[in-house]
Design a protein around this nucleic acid. Structure first.
Lengths: 337, 337
DNA sequence: CGAGAATTCTACAACGATGCAAACCAGTCC
DNA sequence: GGACTGGTTTGCATCGTTGTAGAATTCTCG
C-alpha cells in the first residue's frame, strides 16, 4: 500500500497537517521540521494521492484534449504540441478521439469523464451551429481549430478564408488558371472546408477567373486515401486543370501520388499546394508547397487560453477569439514563379 | 455548482446512498424507487464526480500511455489505437511524451501523476538494462514496443530480429547484395536498433554476404530528417549500394527522398524497404515496401494485458511476453522479384 | 396472523488530501 | 512578569463517493 500523509507524519513525529504544509510550501514551517518531514517523505517514497487532492481542492491539474483522430498527422502533431505545452505547466492531458463524429462530440461534452479534468480543448468537426447550445458547459472550454460557432465561447482558430485565398492567389500568380480543389464538403456549415472554399472563390473572383464547379472535388474525411480517391474522380471527369489545392496536406499528398501515377508531372503539368505544413510535406517527392497555419502557436494559445479561463476568478470574462497568422511555405510542388 | 448525490437524493426523497445504489446497478432497488431516482438524476443533470469515486474505490478507470512523441507517426498511430481500444472498455487515457529521453522515462515511472491512473503502458526508448530496477513499480506496467528488459514485467513486443531478418532476406531474394542500413544506434542496448541490426546481420550471414560496416548509418532519433541526413552521409561515403533498409518508415521515406534528389532511381538503382507500415507508406512515390509489425494487434494486446493485470486479484501472475506477428508488405520501392 | 426470510433502504465510516481557525510557543515590550 | 506579537503547529471539518452492517419494510407460508 502506498504511504499516506499520516504515515509520513508518524515517522517524522509531527501531525499529518504539518506534512501537508511542507508539501504545499506553506511558508511558516521551521527549517528543522521541514527537513525532518522531507527525510520521512524520502524514506517512505511518499507520493501525494492526486485524486484525494483534487477532490478536496477542486483542481485536477488535468485537461482534456479532444481531436478527431490521432491517425491524422495534423491532429497528432497538434496533440503533441498541446501535451508538450501542458507538461511545461505541470499539467496532464487526457486525449479523446471523436472520429469527427457529431454524436461523439456531443457525448463528450456531456461526459462525466470531464469531471476528472479542469477543462477541455475541443477540435470539433461533426457538430454544426444547430448544436451550439451543447457548448454551454459548466467547465472551461476552448474550441481549437477551424470551425467557429456563433456562441460565446473561446475560439483559437486560423485565418481559413485569408489563408485559402492566399494559397489560391499564389497559384494564380504563378500563372495557373484551372485550379482544382480537393476537400469540399457540403455537409459542413462553419467548418474549414466551407471557409477554405470561400477563400478560393474570393481569390478567383478577384482575379477574374471563373469558378468552375467541375474542378471542385468533395472529400468528407481528410485522409490520404480521400485525397487519392478525389484525384481519381477528378481525372475521370476529364476536365483540364493545371493546379490542385488540397484542403489539407494529407489529401494533397494522396492526390499528388495519384497524379504522378497517371503520368502528370508535378509541378510542370500540375502544381500542387496543401494546407497544414506537416512534417512529411518537406519530404515528399516533390516536396509539397503548403500553408503553415501556425500550428505551434495554435497549440500553445489554446492551452494558454484554457489556463486563463481555469484560473479566472470572479465574473466571467467575455469570450476571446484568437487568430493565428499563416504563411505560405514554398516548396517544389508549386514554385512561386 | 455541479449536483451531487445528496442533491439528487433530496429531490427524489430518498437517502443519498440509494442514489448511489441506483447508479451502481445494485440489484435490490425497487423499480419505482429506481425510476424516481433516475428522474431526479435527469432533472438535475447529475454526473458522478469521478475523483471522489476513485478516491473511495481505488479505481480510476484511467490508464497512462507514454510514448516518445506523437510527432512520430508510428507512435501517433499506435496511441490512436490504444485510445480507441481503451474507449471501447470505458477507459480514459492520459498521454505522456518522454521524448525518448532516459531521464524523462525514469521520472515518469516515479511520477505522482500516475496515482491518477490504474496503470501504465510505456514505450521505452532511452532507458537501458541498467535502469531495469526502475521498472519495479507499485502499479501495473506493460512495456510496449521493441525494447525488452531482463526484468519480470509484462512485455508486448514485436519480432524485431526475425522481421529485420525477413526484410533483409526479401531484398537479398530480389538480387540485392549491397544493402545499406539506416537507424543503427550504438547507445542502445536492448532496443530495436540493436535487434534489427542483428536480424540484418543474420540474414547476410545466412546468405554468405559479407557484413560491411560502411553500409551502416547511424541515427538516434528516427524522424524523417534523420533518415534524410543519414542518406546524405551514405552518399558522401561514396560506397556502392543497391538497397536500403530503413529501421522505420519515417526514416526510409526521408532517405528515399534524398536518394531521388541525388538522381538514384527507386527501385531500379536502389530498392528501399522500411519498417512500421505507416499510413503514408502506401502513398509515397514510389510507395514504400515495408514490414508491418502488427501495430493494431500490439496496441490492443498491450491494453488487454494491462487490463488483465489491473483486474488481477491474489498472487501476482508471472509476467507475460506477447509477440506480434509481422508481415512484409510489398510495394513499389522494393518489388519482390 | 405472526414468525422468519427476503428484500429494500439507510446510517455511518472510510478514502487521503486541504482550508480554516484555534492552540501553542518563543521572544519582545512595558 | 504578564500581555502582546508573530511565527509555527495542530485539530477538525470537509470534498463526493462507496462498503459494510444493520434497520426498516415487505413477502412467504405454516
Amino acid at each position: 500500500m502506498a504511504a499516506t500523509l499520516r504515515d509520513v507524519a508518524k515517522l517524522a513525529g509531527v501531525s499529518f497537517k504539518t506534512v501537508s504544509n511542507v508539501i504545499n510550501d506553506y511558508p511558516h514551517v521551521r527549517p528543522a521540521t521541514r527537513e525532518k518531514v522531507e527525510r520521512a517523505i524520502a524514506e517512505l517514497g511518499y507520493k501525494p494521492n492526486l485524486n484525494a487532492r483534487s477532490l478536496r481542492s477542486g483542481r485536477t491539474d488535468t485537461v482534456a484534449l479532444a481531436v478527431p483522430e490521432l491517425n491524422l498527422s495534423y491532429f497528432a502533431e497538434l496533440a503533441g504540441m498541446v501535451i508538450a505545452a501542458a507538461e511545461e505547466n505541470g499539467l496532464t492531458v487526457v486525449v479523446e478521439q471523436t472520429g469527427g463524429d457529431r454524436d461523439r462530440e456531443l457525448a463528450l461534452l456531456r461526459s462525466p469523464r470531464l469531471s476528472m479534468t479542469d477543462g477541455l480543448i475541443l477540435s470539433p468537426l461533426g457538430m454544426g451551429q444547430e448544436d451550439a447550445d451543447a457548448l454551454d458547459v459548466p467547465f472551461p472550454l476552448v474550441l481549437l481549430g477551424e470551425r467557429t460557432f456563433d456562441w460565446p465561447c473561446d475560439h483559437v482558430t486560423m485565418r481559413n478564408v485569408e489563408a485559402a485565398r492566399a494559397a489560391t492567389e499564389y497559384l494564380l500568380a504563378s500563372g495557373r488558371r484551372r485550379i482544382a480543389v480537393i476537400g469540399e464538403y457540403e455537409g459542413e456549415v462553419m467548418g474549414s472546408a466551407r471557409l477554405r472554399l470561400r477563400g478560393y472563390r474570393e481569390a478567383l473572383a478577384a482575379h477574374g477567373v471563373p469558378y468552375d464547379a467541375s474542378l471542385v472535388v468533395r472529400a468528407t474525411l481528410w485522409h490520404r486515401a480521400d485525397g487519392a480517391r478525389a484525384m481519381h474522380e477528378l481525372l475521370e471527369r476529364d476536365v483540364p486543370f493545371d493546379a490542385v489545392f488540397g484542403f489539407n496536406d494529407t489529401m494533397a499528398l494522396g492526390a499528388m501520388r495519384v497524379l504522378q501515377e497517371a503520368g502528370r508531372r508535378v509541378p510542370e503539368d500540375v502544381a500542387v499546394i496543401g494546407f497544414d505544413d506537416l512534417d512529411e510535406a518537406a519530404y515528399s517527392i516533390p516536396s509539397l508547397t503548403t500553408v503553415d497555419p501556425g500550428r505551434e502557436w495554435l497549440a500553445r494559445t489554446a492551452l494558454g487560453t484554457l489556463l486563463a479561463r481555469i484560473a479566472e476568478v470572479g465574473p466571467k470574462q467575455p469570450p476571446r477569439t484568437e487568430l493565428a497568422d499563416f504563411t505560405i511555405v514554398e516548396r517544389e510542388s508549386a514554385p512561386r514563379a
